[in-house]
Design a protein around this nucleic acid. Structure first.
Lengths: 139, 139
DNA sequence: GTACGTGCAAAGAATTTGCAGATAA
DNA sequence: TTATCTGCAAATTCTTTGCACGTAC
C-alpha cells in the first residue's frame, strides 16, 4: 500500500509526491540496481507525464537523504539500490550486471582508527571482475 | 631514471612511449589521485604536443593492465592512483579531496564464499563523508 | 498565496570515436 | 614496411540548469 511508502519518505524528511512514491516503489520491488534511464523507461508507459529530470532529481534527493543508495561502481552511469542495509556489490565487466553480496565482516570492522578524523556517511565495497557465465563464454 | 618506468610498463605488457612514461611518472610522484584533466594540465606545459585524448587513452590502458588504479569514488570524474598496493580511500563531499587509508582488515578477509563464483580482478573500498577541516567550517 | 514540485528544452561536462599523420621496430 | 601510437575535431552520453507552469496546503 502507498501509505507505507509515504511514511517511509516522511521518515527521511522527504515530502511524498506521486512521482517520488512511484520511483521509490520501483526500487523497492526491483533489486536490479537500475540506472535513472532504466527507471524512466520502466515508469514512463504508466506515467506518461513523468520526465527524466524528475527521475534524476528524485533519485538524487532520495540518495542525499539516505533513503536509497547511489552506487558509483560503474564508471559510466549511476546505479541505485533500494536496499540500504550494509552489503557489498559485484560488477561483471563483461555483462555489466551487478550482484548483491553479504559482507564477510561486520561493517564496523572495516572502519579504521584513522577514520576517527573523518565523519563517515557512507561506506561502499565494490568487487569487479567476471561472473561465472561470462568466464565460460570466454573459454 | 626512465629505464625503471620503461621496465615497469613492459612488465605490464605495455609498450613504453614518451607520453606513457610521462603520465606514469606523474602518477608515481603525485599521490593526489589526479583526474585525466589534472594530469593533462600538469604535463602540457612541458609537453606541448600532448593531447587530452592520449591522456585518456593512456590512463585507460594502464588501468586495464593493472599498472595503475582507476577510482570511481567520485561520481563525476575518474581519479587515478599510481599506488596499486591494497588500500582504501576517503572522499570528502565538501572539499572533494581523496585520502589514502590503510586497510583495517587484510584484503582477503573481505572476500566472501559467494565470491568463489566470480573472478575478482579488483576490490575497491570507499569511505565518504566530511574531513575534519570541512566539519569545522560547517560548525 | 506562497512555497515547493514538475517537466521541457537547452546547456554542460567527461569521455570516446573516426580518421589522418607520425613514429618506431 | 607494417603495425602501433598520437592528436585533432566532432560526436556521444550522462546529468544538471533555467525557467515557466502546476499543485498543495
Amino acid at each position: 500500500m502507498k501509505t507505507e511508502l509515504q511514511n517511509y519518505l516522511q521518515h527521511y524528511g522527504i515530502k511524498p509526491s506521486v512521482q517520488r512514491i512511484a520511483i521509490l516503489e520501483y526500487l523497492h520491488t526491483h533489486a536490479t540496481h537500475p540506472t535513472a534511464e532504466e527507471i524512466y523507461v520502466a515508469l514512463h508507459p504508466t506515467m506518461p507525464t513523468l520526465s527524466k529530470t524528475t527521475v534524476y532529481n528524485t533519485l538524487k534527493l532520495l540518495a542525499r537523504h539516505g533513503a536509497i543508495l547511489l552506487l558509483d561502481i560503474d564508471g559510466e552511469t549511476a546505479h541505485f539500490d533500494g536496499d540500504i542495509r550494509p552489503h557489498a556489490h559485484f560488477l561483471c565487466h563483461q555483462c555489466r550486471h551487478i550482484w548483491d553480496l553479504p559482507l564477510a565482516v561486520a561493517p564496523e570492522a572495516l572502519l579504521l582508527d584513522e577514520l576517527e578524523l573523518f565523519q563517515v556517511d557512507d561506506i561502499q565495497l565494490y568487487y569487479k571482475g567476471l561472473c561465472r557465465a561470462c568466464q565460460q563464454k570466454i573459454d
